[in-house]
Amino acid sequence: MIKLFSLKQQKKDGDQSARGGQQKKASAAQLRIQKDINELTLPKTCAVEFPDSDDLLNFKLIMSPDEGFYRDGRFVFNFRVGSNYPHEPPKVKCGTQVYHPNIDLDGNVCLNILREDWNPVLTINSVVYGLQFLFLEPNPEDPLNKEAADVLQSNRRQFEYNVKKAMRGGCVGETFFECCLK
C-alpha cells in the first residue's frame, strides 16, 4: 500500500489550498446527467427539449410514435432528475392526457425501471427506450388505467378505436381527452 502520510507532519493552520480557493466543482449527479444527456441516442420518433439549457436536471421528452396504437400522436413526458441520481431513478410524468393501460389520468407512468427495477447502471436513454416500448406494446397485465387495460384484454379492436378517439380529442367512457395528434 502507498505509504500514506504522516499526519503529524501536516500543518493545518493557514495551509490553504494553492488552487485559487473556491473553484466550485459540479456535483456527482450533475456529472452523471451531463454524461447521460450528451450521449443520448434517441430513436427517430423522440426528441428532448430543455426549457433552460443550464438546467440539465429538468427536461421534456417528446415522443411521436410512427407505428402501433399510438401512431400519429404526440406525447410529452416531463423528466425531473434529483440530486441523488443515479442512485434514485428520474421522476417521469406524462404531461399529455392519454388513454393507456399503464398511464393514469394524472400522468403517472407504470414502468418497472422507473421504480422497482431501477438500477444505477441504467441511463436516461434506457428510460426513453422503456417509454417507447410502453407505447408500442401497452401491457394490460400491470394496469394503471384499469378500464383501458380491460378493454385491451377483451377487445383489441375496441381498444384501438378508443385510443384513436382519445387522440383525436373526445370522450372515452366518462373521460374527456384532449387532441394530441401531431
Binding site: 444527456i37 428532448v48 439549457s53
Partner: peptide, 23 residues
C-alpha cells in the same frame, strides 16, 4: 464534447453541447 461549469455564484451553466438540438 459537452462543456459545463459552475459559475462563481454557484450556478450551474451549460457552455456548449452539440448533441442535443435544443441545448
Amino acid at each position: 464534447p459537452a462543456l459545463t461549469t459552475v459559475m462563481a455564484d454557484g450556478k450551474q451553466r451549460t457552455l456548449y453541447m452539440a448533441n442535443v438540438k435544443s441545448i
